[in-house]
């Protein structure tokens, strides 16, 4: 069984490769020294400074607005889209097209949207960012919801109709509840995607409403500072927490 042993080392090495850089940033964020690379002691002062930084707070506020709006819009549209493509379309081309924004390069999507907004002279700002995020997030939500819909027995809805419920009642009393785990997972996923999204925001945002990734981008371009380390750590932990929660609900949705 030496083969398994060797492969085990590969796995360990890859995990080290994936996590060591992140871990270093987190460790550095607790460094008391102003010089980013010299450890002089443990401190949380960079975190308190972070919360006094106006542009960071402004970015956070904008990111939360965009994240929550995108989440709501993309869940509603994504679920409808998923129902549409699985129940009412047999064309695989339609299915592929609907899920395309999740696959095409973000840069292509970004400039396509920028061009679209300019063509209709729509002013760039948080609204355009939300609309843009929704387009690609709803594709992810639709993909998750589609997986769940394919698992659900279509007879459930027929049974409810047979028992005298109206189509509308069936939708809210049977379809939506049975999709709930996928909806939760999709919502969390849409939120993280939107919260961390940079490229599309970079192209579709106006200058006066920077989101957190835009703020991070402009900070990072000026080099390494302990403050970025602290900000990076918080954002990382936040995303990880949300992804883990959504993983759990996906698992839940599979077990139901």
């Amino acid at each position: 069984m030496t083969g398994v042993g060797k492969l085990g080392w590969v796995l360990a090495a890859v995990c080290f490769f994936l996590y060591a850089p992140i871990a270093i940033v987190i460790v550095m964020s607790f460094n008391a020294s102003k010089i980013p690379f010299q450890w002089t002691g443990f401190s949380t002062k960079w975190y308190s400074e972070l919360f006094a930084n106006a542009s960071v707070l402004e970015g956070l506020r904008n990111s939360l607005i965009v994240g929550v709006s995108t989440m709501i819009l993309s869940v509603v549209l994504g679920v409808l889209l998923a129902i549409g493509i699985t129940r009412h379309s047999t064309s695989s081309a339609v299915q592929a097209l609907a899920l395309a924004p999740a696959i095409i390069p973000d840069l292509a999507l970004a400039i396509g949207l920028l061009a679209l907004f300019s063509a209709i002279s729509f002013p760039l700002g948080l609204t355009t960012v939300i609309l843009s995020h929704t387009i690609f997030c709803m594709a992810f939500v639709a993909a998750i919801a589609r997986g769940r819909i394919l698992q659900i027995d279509p007879a459930l809805e027929e049974a409810a109709l047979d028992l005298g419920d109206t189509p509308r009642g069936v939708f809210f009393r049977v379809t939506v509840p049975s999709l709930m785990p996928a909806i939760i997972a999709g919502a969390l996923l849409a939120f993280t995607l939107s919260f961390d999204e940079f490229v599309i925001t970079f192209f579709t945002n106006g200058p006066s409403t920077p989101t957190l990734p835009i703020v991070i981008y402009s900070m990072v371009r000026f080099g390494v500072t302990p403050e970025i380390n602290a900000l990076a750590s918080l954002v990382l932990l936040f995303s990880v927490a949300i992804v883990l929660i959504s993983q759990r609900s996906v698992k839940l949705s599979q077990s139901i």
């Binding site: 890859v14 995990c15 994936l18 996590y19 850089p21 992140i22 270093i24 940033v25 550095m28 980013p36 690379f37 993280t192 961390d196 940079f198 990734p213 991070i216 981008y217 990072v220 080099g223 390494v224 970025i228 380390n229 990076a232 954002v235 990382l236 995303s239 990880v240 992804v243 883990l244 993983q247």
Partner: peptide, 28 residues
């Protein structure tokens, strides 16, 4: 699988930034 994918779901800029920390001339 979750371990391998997890970093992918975190902020891209920050993951790139981590390599500046590692590779710069005063870097680790």
């Amino acid at each position: 699988l979750v371990l391998v994918i997890l970093p992918f779901w975190t902020n891209f800029l920050i993951r790139t930034y981590a390599w500046i920390v590692l590779l710069s001339s005063e870097g680790l």
